[in-house]
Nucleic acid binder design. Structure first.
Length: 209
DNA sequence: AATCAGGATCCGC
DNA sequence: GCGGATCCTGATT
């Protein structure tokens, strides 16, 4: 009985993924694929347009969000969308997470996915920034390498990076002022520094990968 | 106006 | 204590 219901759900997820041409694992979704998934969910369950409230969020971002955070994006349907995403996630739990081949950023994520953080794991700011940088397909609009070999990167959209960091840490009041203060704490720790020629919003990992 | 530097203080793990 | 988050002053771009 239980397995029958689960089987139906898995089938629905499967057909939806084929229809939308997206991976089953939300962790792999780009922000565009997130929008696809939202539009499809809106259509399926006759919801109004909520996709705009989740602009610029990748599937990874969604996966790191709590139900409360979903409600903060959509007071009316946040819990519902969270539940639907959870169906996808439980499907993945049974069938295994996506491999780099499934990912749209397969070219970029050679070894990136191996040391990736998963939800509910504590994460350090420098690790978080690295994660964003390792996924240019998802995040190059807000943060990107200027010189990957030297570990030099530029924050293109400080507000967006701060928002993502605040979401991950569940700190809604996070902003670039506070995020950058935390980055500066890394100076004396020898984790991040300013490059030799100091430029606005440009930092450098002391130990490039 | 936004960013940068760094001191002080508070907080959760 | 560690790793921020928050708040702040003052300087720089």
């Amino acid at each position: 009985m239980q397995t029958l219901v689960v089987g139906e759900v898995l089938k629905d997820v499967d057909t939806a993924c084929k229809l939308l041409n997206i991976s089953q694992d939300p962790m792999c979704w780009s922000w565009l694929q997130v929008q696809k998934w939202l539009l499809w969910t809106e259509h399926m369950y006759h919801l109004p347009r909520v996709s705009a409230l989740f602009q610029g969020l990748s599937g990874r971002d969604l996966c790191f969000m709590s139900e409360t955070q979903f409600r903060q994006h959509s007071a009316q349907f946040g819990d519902m969308l969270y539940a639907h995403l959870d169906i996808w996630r439980s499907a993945v739990a049974m069938k295994g997470p996506c491999t780099p081949e499934d990912s749209t950023s397969a070219v970029e994520s050679s070894y990136a996915d191996v040391m990736t953080t998963y939800p509910n794991q504590p994460i350090h700011l420098w690790q978080f920034l690295r994660e964003l940088l390792l996924r240019p397909h998802n995040y190059s609009r807000c943060i990107r390498w200027l010189n990957k070999e030297k570990g030099i990167f530029k924050i293109e959209d400080s507000a967006h990076v701060a928002r993502l960091w605040g979401m991950r840490k569940n700190r809604p009041a996070m902003n670039y002022d506070k995020l950058s203060r935390s980055i500066r704490q890394y100076y004396k720790k020898g984790i991040i520094r300013k490059p030799d020629v100091s430029r606005r919003l440009v930092y450098q990992f002391v130990n490039p990968v």
